[in-house]
Amino acid sequence: MAAVAAADAPSCYSRLTNEWFCWQYVQDRKPEIVDATVQHIQITVIAVVVSVLIAFPLALVARRLPRLEALILGLSTAVYTIPSLALLPLLVPFTGLSATTVVIGLSLYALTILVRSILEGLRSVPADVRESATGLGYGTTRRLFRVELPLALPVMMAGLRVATVSTVALTTVGTLVSYGGLGNLINDGVRTNFRAELMTASIICVGLAVVLDLLIVGSQWLLTPWTHGRGETT
């Protein structure tokens, strides 16, 4: 690093040196990197929020109607089987080359994880707990919000973590339609054989996944105060 910082040394991301790690690159191209990161976060967060909003009612309906549950689980298996690079083009006739295409594609993948984990979470509530709630005079709706959802939270949050982390990683593929956030930098890095760009974008991408994961773990800790001090639950 000291050599790089020396006054007249060629920049560490010049064609000649093409180093993997180069702080100079980060400083010089800061606006570009920030833009890509912001786009990445926007696409990821919108996709996850949309899929949470859809997954909840879907899972609740599926729980009521077993036949629908089989259909939903079957469809979600089919969706996750389709590679991301193939799913995006299949959406293009409807939504064109836009960020919407990427968001819809990512939401579909996240949806398959979330619906399963919500159903799994609700199923993890012991039957005797449900019965006691009914015995205490809880109606179906109040029982759902006061008893079942809080108890199902750890399993559902585990699903949310998985969905979020994999959405961060998958967003990079959006570069196919030019909306891939950090994926656009990775793509450019491959095309122009630019190691610093490629490495920086990859590191930010993994870092982003870790940060979002920690945020979810933190909010889960705040949302489930009754689990602290009792050691591991689940």
């Binding site: 982390v165 994999s166 990683a169 990079t172 990775i186 491959v190 490629l198 990859s202 993994v206």
Partner: peptide, 13 residues
Amino acid sequence: RAVPTFALLALLV
């Protein structure tokens, strides 16, 4: 899960 397939492939290539 956290490492994008695309990024790893790009690094290897």
